[in-house]
Computed example of a mutant assay.
Amino acid sequence: MALSGTDVIGQAKTGTGKTLGFGLPLLERVTVPADVEAGRAKPEDLTNAPQALVVVPTRELCQQVTNDLLTAGKVRNVRVSAIYGGRAYEPQVEALRKGVDVVVGTPGRLLDLAGQRKLDLKHVRALVLDEADEMLDLGFLPDVEKIINLLPAKRQTMLFSATMPGAVIGLARRYMSQPTHIRAAAPDDEGATVANTTQFIYRAHNMDKPELVARIPAVRRPGPGHGLLPHQAHRRRPRRPAQAARLRLRRGPRRPRPGRP
């Protein structure tokens, strides 16, 4: 559906591959120098300004989507740039100045650079609103509407969301043209994450976090302590004094935490 150029609403849980669902059609639609050289596009279709825009709610998702699109667009040498807050303006402005085909960004920084006339959105042919329900939860929908009003009226718009609250449906009605609604879930399944995605939370002191993350790949197989690191799994069972002493010897002395003797 997205490859045909029609507007699409994709409703699917987190973890179902929405990124390439909209990413591959975007990469196919943009014009790169190789297209002009091969006669597949006219020289006037080639521009240094963004031809596609992906709006996401968080910097982490921005980085993830950018990396996925860079990987998928490597063969065609599609230029993809991440625009998000919390980092210096200069590298992002420099990337835009050199030329970019696809911009992935968060609403605040996109509006900021557009207001400074560093980001030209007049050539955008395709817009993607990713994780629209999360943008609603974070209060970004007014900024999203401001961004949409900066885009050409003639464009393809795709909206992807795990759930479809009323505000998101209203956004789709105002800014999309006869969209095809594709729901990749059972009608009675309202969860936001696929069932085979298991999430774990590890509570740790700030000083222990790097070591904790480094140990996560050491988990070999599900077992009695599934979801725990190997040394944490042992703590689920009471130890005899001798066992505790041997374990402490293998680990070494405990490091004192700040503020503790």
Rank of each mutant, 00 (worst) to 15 (best):
L110K: 02
L111M: 10
D112T: 10
G115V: 09
G115P: 09
K118D: 13
L119C: 07
L121P: 01
K122F: 02
K122R: 14
H123F: 03
H123E: 09
H123P: 01
R125I: 02
L127T: 02
V128F: 03
V128P: 02
V128W: 00
V128N: 02
L129D: 00
E131I: 11
D133N: 07
D133I: 07
D133A: 09
D133C: 05
M135C: 08
M135G: 08
L138V: 10
L138P: 10
G139T: 11
F140I: 09
L141D: 11
P142C: 07
P142E: 10
D143Y: 03
E145P: 07
E145H: 08
I147H: 01
I148N: 00
N149K: 14
N149A: 13
L150A: 09
L150Y: 04
L151K: 00
L151S: 01
L151N: 00
P152L: 05
A153M: 12
K154V: 13
K154D: 14
R155G: 02
R155M: 03
Q156G: 09
Q156Y: 01
M158S: 05
L159K: 01
L159F: 02
L159M: 12
L159C: 05
F160Q: 01
S161F: 01
S161P: 11
M164R: 03
M164Y: 07
P165V: 11
G166T: 15
G166M: 14
G166Y: 12
A167G: 11
I169A: 15
G170C: 07
L171M: 12
A172I: 08
A172Q: 05
R173T: 15
R174P: 06
Y175S: 04
Y175V: 06
Y175Q: 06
S177G: 08
P179N: 06
T180Y: 10
I182S: 05
I182Y: 03
I182L: 12
A184Y: 09
A185H: 13
A186H: 15
A186T: 13
P187I: 13
D188P: 04
D189R: 08
G191Q: 15
A192Y: 10
A192G: 15
T193R: 03
T193M: 07
T193G: 10
T193W: 03
A195N: 12
N196H: 12
Q199R: 08
